[in-house]
Design a protein around this nucleic acid. Structure first.
Lengths: 209, 209
DNA sequence: AGTTTGGGTGTACGTCTGTACACCCAAACT
DNA sequence: AGTTTGGGTGTACAGACGTACACCCAAACT
C-alpha cells in the first residue's frame, strides 16, 4: 500500500483535511464548498473525489479526527493524575490548557459543530462527550469519600465537571494563547473544580443545602 | 406609522424572521439563502430587501430577538426566586425548563450560533452570557454565607452556575418536550445546583479540598 | 380628486456551486 | 518491456445564488 504513490495520496488527503479545518474556522462546516477547499489545496475541483465522496464525508473524517484528539486529552488527564486533590486539580487544568492549545483546530471544530453541524456530526460529538462523562464517573468512584455514592450521584457530578471543563475549553479557544485572559480562565477553572469537589465531599453527609 | 400598510409590513417581517428561524434549525445561519427564505415566506426574492439589507442583518435581528428572550428568562428567574435554597433551586430549574420550551427556536438559535455564527453574532451572544454572569454574581452576594466573599470568588461561582445552566438548556433542546429525558435533565440540574451551593457554603471556611 | 409612496412582482445578468466526462502520465504490477 | 492503475487535469453544463432594474397598484398623503 505505501509506495511513492501511497505517500503522495496521503499527503494530499492531509492537505484537504487541513484546508477544510482552516477554512471552516471562523464559520462552519456547512459553509464550506468543495471548490474552495480544492483551490486552497492547489488541486482541481474534481480531484477532490479521489479522496472523499462528498463534503459530508470530509466532515465525518474531521469529526473522527477531532474526537480522537479528545480521547487523547482524556487519556492524558488520567495518565498525569496525582494523588491528592490539589495535584489532581492543578494537573488537570494544566493538561487541559496544553492539549487545547496543541490541537486548537480540532477543539474549535468540535465547539462549532457540536450544535451547528449536520445531525450525524452532532450525534458523534454528543457520544464522545458522554463517553468522557462515563469514564470520569468511574474514576470518581475510586476517590476517597465517594464510597457510598449511587450511580446516579456519580453521573450527576461527572456531567457537572465535564460541563465545566467543556466551558473552560471553549473559553480557552476565545482567549489568546499565553495571554492574561488565558491565565484567568485557568485560575477560574481551578477554583471551580475546588468548589465542585468541596460540594461533592459534603454531599451525602449533608444532602440538601 | 401603523396603518393597514404598517401592519402588513410588520407581518411580512415577522414571517421572514420565523422562516429564517425554522430553516436555520438543523443547520446554521450561514447555510441560509435569501431565496430559500423568500420562497418559504411566499414572496419574490427581491422583496426581501424591503425588510433587510442582507442576510447578515437578518441574522443580527435574530440575535437581538433571541437575546431578548434570554433576558426575559433572567428576569423571570429573579422574579420567582424564593427565600430558602430548596425553593430557589427548584423554582429556577422549573422556570428554565418552561422558558426554554416556550422559546425553543430562540434558545436553539443561540446554541447554534454561539460558536458557529459570524463574529458579530458570537460577540453579541458572549456579551449576553457575560451579562447573566454579572447579574448572578450580584444576586449571589445577597445570599447568606457569601458576606465575606471577594468579587473574584463571586465571579467564579456565578460563571460555574451559568455554565451549568447553559449546559442544561442545551440538553433540554436535545431532549423531547415532556419526555423522560427532560425530567432526567431537570433532576440532574437540581442536584448539580445543590452540589455547587454546598461547595460554595463551605468555600471560605475550607478553601482547599 | 390627484399625486406620492412603498411593498411586492418579473425579468435578467454574472458568479459560484457540484459533478459528469474524456483525457494524461508516472508509479506499480506482470 | 508491456500493461494496468489511479491521482490529477481541463472542459462543460445545469442549477442556485445575490442583486440590479423597470414595473405595478393600493394605501397614504395633499
Amino acid at each position: 500500500m505505501t509506495g511513492i504513490r501511497g505517500e503522495q495520496k496521503e499527503r494530499t488527503r492531509r492537505a484537504i483535511l487541513d484546508a477544510a479545518l482552516s477554512l471552516s474556522d471562523g464559520s462552519a462546516l456547512v459553509a464550506l464548498s468543495l471548490r474552495q477547499v480544492a483551490k486552497e489545496v492547489g488541486i482541481v475541483p474534481t480531484a477532490f473525489y479521489r479522496h472523499f465522496p462528498s463534503i459530508e464525508d470530509l466532515g465525518m473524517a474531521l469529526v473522527e479526527e477531532s474526537l480522537d484528539t479528545l480521547r487523547t486529552l482524556l487519556r492524558e488527564l488520567r495518565r498525569t493524575a496525582g494523588d491528592d486533590f490539589r495535584s489532581i486539580i492543578d494537573g488537570s487544568v494544566t493538561v487541559l490548557v496544553t492539549q487545547v492549545r496543541q490541537d486548537q483546530a480540532h477543539f474549535g471544530f468540535i465547539a462549532r459543530e457540536r450544535f451547528a453541524g449536520p445531525p450525524a456530526v452532532r450525534e458523534a460529538i454528543a457520544r464522545g462527550i458522554e463517553l468522557a462523562e462515563r469514564e470520569l464517573a468511574i474514576d470518581l468512584a475510586h476517590l476517597p469519600g465517594t464510597d457510598q455514592w449511587s450511580e446516579e450521584d456519580l453521573r450527576v457530578l461527572s456531567t457537572l465537571i465535564v460541563g465545566a471543563m467543556v466551558a473552560t475549553a471553549e473559553r480557552l479557544l476565545t482567549a489568546g494563547s499565553g495571554s492574561d485572559a488565558e491565565r484567568k480562565v485557568a485560575d477560574t477553572a481551578r477554583a471551580q473544580l475546588r468548589m465542585m469537589l468541596i460540594g461533592a465531599m459534603q454531599w451525602r453527609s449533608r444532602p440538601s443545602p
